[in-house]
């Protein structure tokens, strides 16, 4: 059975594992206990103490806070229930044509899509970019089924797991009501 020490996983996470070691890792069958070791390593990776359930992004985690499952940035900022698209609570910036050319000069500049950038309101890290047609709903890229994952795939018990459901439209609904 392939297995790696916690130190190896920590190094991999921090980008300190030499490429030659990573290449060897790729040639091996996957280590089945990776998830647990990874979560353990992640605890060393952030400054706060909340229980990490899953890392969904370079900087974003699903954590368990009392009875809530929320998205939290590595800087400590919280985005709310993980079933609501976290982007709806970020800062947004849409580039105009000149600003696009700053990234990709002619003839590489796209013309029919708009590039949206999402920042963390606290640390101003660029968390996500999306290139969609003007007027397209903000995309909810990944909604994990936490319940099935922990209970059915990992055979772990989790308390008060909320139902697997996309709640994003409830956010816009509340915005429309406040209008």
């Amino acid at each position: 059975m392939v297995e790696y020490s916690s130190e190896v996983i920590e190094k991999l996470l921090k980008g300190e594992l030499p490429i030659s070691e990573i290449q060897k890792m790729q040639m091996e069958p996957k280590d089945p206990d990776r998830f647990d070791k990874y979560i353990k390593a992640l605890k060393q990776h952030v400054d706060w103490d909340d229980e990490i359930l899953m890392r969904i992004h370079e900087h974003l985690y699903i954590i368990k806070k009392e009875n809530n499952y929320v998205v939290k940035c590595s800087c400590g900022h919280e985005f709310g229930d993980y079933r609501e698209n976290w982007k709806l609570k970020a800062l947004i910036f849409v580039r105009d044509r000149n600003e696009l050319e700053e990234l990709y000069p002619e003839p590489l500049t796209p013309e029919w899509s708009e590039l949206r950038e999402f920042y963390c309101p606290n640390c101003a890290t660029l968390l996500w970019t999306e290139a969609l047609i003007p007027g397209y709903p903000i995309n909810f890229d990944f909604l994990p089924d936490i319940k099935a994952f922990f209970q059915e795939w990992l055979n772990k018990t989790l308390e008060n797991v909320p139902e697997f459901k996309d709640l994003s439209s409830e956010v816009t609904e509340s915005w429309a009501k406040n209008e």
Binding site: M1, V2, K24, M27, E28, P29, K30, P32
Partner: peptide, 15 residues
Amino acid sequence: LKIDPISKRIILGPE
């Protein structure tokens, strides 16, 4: 030689 934990197949090499 090693074993794939899923399929229990024996894998030879390449190392």
